[in-house]
Every structure is written in C-alpha cells, then in structure tokens.
Design a protein around this nucleic acid. Structure first.
Lengths: 192, 192
DNA sequence: GTCTATAGCGCGATAGAC
DNA sequence: GTCTATCGCGCTATAGAC
C-alpha cells in the first residue's frame, strides 16, 4: 500500500456520506466521528475540503472506469456489456440502506458550489462513461443486437443521463425494484 | 394577490439559488442579499428553512404541473405534447446563465439531508410528472406515433429520469445544445 | 412587516505539543 | 500522524424595538 490506511478510511467515509447526503451536507466533523479520529487529523491528510473532494473524485473515477473497462474486456456480447454496466449503478443503489447514488451524480447537482478541480474531475468522469457506452452501443449496433438510428455518442449520453437520473429519482420512490423496471425498459428500447 | 410581494420575492430568490447551487448551499444570508431585506425579515415569512423549502416545492409543483396540464389540454398530437413537455426542461436550462436545473431534480440529490415534508413534496412532484407522461405515452401509442412494447408507466418513469438526469449532466458538459441532442435522441427512440 | 442585536452552534482551518 | 485548543466565520433562529 502506498496509501496510509487512515487516508483510505477517510476517503471511504467521505464517499459514503456524499453518496447519501451530498457534498455540502458532509463535514469534517462527520468524517471525524465516522473514522474515529479528530478533525485536525483529517486536515493533516486533506488540508482543505477541496483537496479531499478532488482526491475522492479521482479515486472514484479510477475504480468505476476500471470496472467498466473490465466488463468490456471480459464480455463479447454487447448486450451483456450493457447489462453489467447498468448493474454497476444498481449495485451502488443496493449498498447499505439502499440510499446511495453515484458519487458524481450527486456532485453533478452541487456542481456550481464546488471548486474548479472537482468540476473538472466530474466532467472527466461523465466523458469517460459516455465514451465507454458509445463503444458498447456501436459494437451492439454492428452486431445487430441494438437497433437505433442516431449517433452512438448521443445515445450514449442519453443512456448515461437516464441511469444517473434513474438512481436519483428511485431513491425518492420505488427504490431498487423500480430502478430495475426502468433499466429493463431501457434495454427494451435499445433492442428496438 | 393573497401573497405579499415580499413572500413571493423570497420564494423567487430561494428557487433561483437552489436551482443553481442546491438547497444546502443556499442560506438566509444569500436570500437577504438577493431580496434586499434583513435575515430576520426572512424568518418572519418562513420561520424555519424547512418551512421555506416546503412552500417552495408546493409552489413549484403547482406551477410546473399546471404548465404540463395546459400542454395536454391544448395539444391533440401526443408527439407535440412530448415535445412541449421536454421544452419545459430545456426552458429551465435556458434561464439566466444556463446553469439552472429542475428544482426537484436538485432536491432529489439532497433528499436524505432534507426534512420529511420536503421529501413528501418531491415524491409527489415526481409522481405527478410520471402520471402525466404515462398519459401522453399511452395516447401516443394508441395513435401510432409512439412505438414501445412495455408498460407506459414504466417508460414514463424512464423518460422522466432521463430528462432530470440530462439537465444535471449537460450542466457539466455541453449545455443547452447538448440537451437538445439528447432530447432528439429520446424522441427518436419513442418513435421506434 | 422590518429592523437591530444577539444567542448558540457547527463549520473549515491552523498552531503547536507530543 | 494524532492530539488539544482555538480562531474567525457563517449559519439558523429568536427577542424585542419601531
């Protein structure tokens, strides 16, 4: 490990809090209680909240996109790729009390109240996801398992927005069960 | 007017701030500066932040669903209804500096940090929208202008989630132009 | 209905001992 | 690397004059 355990524990706690409550409702005090060390010690690892946020987004990007790239590498059927990609969002929703959304979906709402580095990180995350999705959709159309007439990059953007939006909406009503229904509908639309 | 002007001005300022920054980044101090009266005067109209939030959501519900119902009443072509419904989200994005999202889309992200009354209001708003959309989709399918195989209520949920998500995502990258592209793609999928 | 003034707290952040 | 202690600020909210 090049990362100290404490640093990782802080990032874990911050991610959990932000995915449930949002960045502006998460404080160093909350982190202190969750990790079991004092506020000042959190500041030792992440001097300013912006630093913590930027590090968190970068870690999340690597983790999430890493999973996506593995899916693309492991599967040969584009329909299976899409299923497993959607499964990543559902898995997030399933964690803990079923009230977690995608980290960058949450931060997207609070975008205008965040610093530049965080905003750039969120943008990069959105773009990386849409690139991977466009690749999956293109392969699927070529293989005849997806049917759509427009630009794959645009449909990728719509698909990503729908998944991010679905996670947020179903937290208010319907939960994981509802998310699955919406995801099934999305797959149906893709199949043409 | 049964509402005092000040009360309306406060609600206007609060809505603007929340649509851009989120509820947790909006404060009575910000409102005070925006409206031009003191913090204590804001508290006279809305004793607690929860009261302000609940009133705001209720007003937004009436305003937005009112527009939707008018669209449904005025149009005979379901495709036109959907276009104009989508136009409501685009119009929000077009306001001011093009950085406003749907009020309840923003609040959905911060849901777990809000009070019960606000949460109920947000849920009601989501449901009302999905009901209207389901009605539009059903008429469209019966008229042969939309083609889909699943339950209209489920496709309505996916459509609503996609629009809410799209507004949030395009604020980070692409703006109104990108939103229109995603919306066009959505219409294309509906047309089958 | 708006004001001044203030209470009381939580926030992000820093200094300096250990 | 973690601690105690503290600073200065912004927050929600209230009391009471006008």
């Amino acid at each position: 490990m090049s990362e100290s355990d404490t640093r990782t524990l802080i990032l874990d706690a911050a991610q959990d809090l932000i995915q449930r409550l949002g960045a502006n409702a998460m404080s160093y005090q909350h982190l202190s209680e969750a990790v079991g060390i004092r506020k000042a010690s959190i500041h030792y690892h992440f001097p300013a909240k912006q630093d913590l946020l930027a590090a968190l987004i970068e870690r999340y990007h690597g983790y999430f996109i890493g999973l996506v790239d593995r899916i693309i590498a492991e599967e040969s059927d584009p329909a299976r790729m899409l299923d497993r990609y959607i499964g990543l969002f559902e898995a997030t929703l399933r964690e803990g009390k079923h009230d977690k959304a995608c980290l960058c979906g949450m931060l997207g709402a609070e975008l205008a109240s965040l610093g530049d580095e965080a905003v750039r990180g969120i943008r990069r995350f959105y773009q990386a996801n849409q690139e991977r999705l466009a690749s999956i959709l293109t392969r699927g159309r070529d293989a005849g398992v997806f049917r759509f007439s427009g630009d794959p990059a645009t449909l990728a953007g719509l698909t990503f927005a729908a998944l991010e939006g679905a996670v947020l909406v179903v937290r208010a009503e319907g939960g994981v069960r509802r998310f699955r229904a919406l995801a099934d509908e999305l797959r149906r639309l893709m199949a043409g």
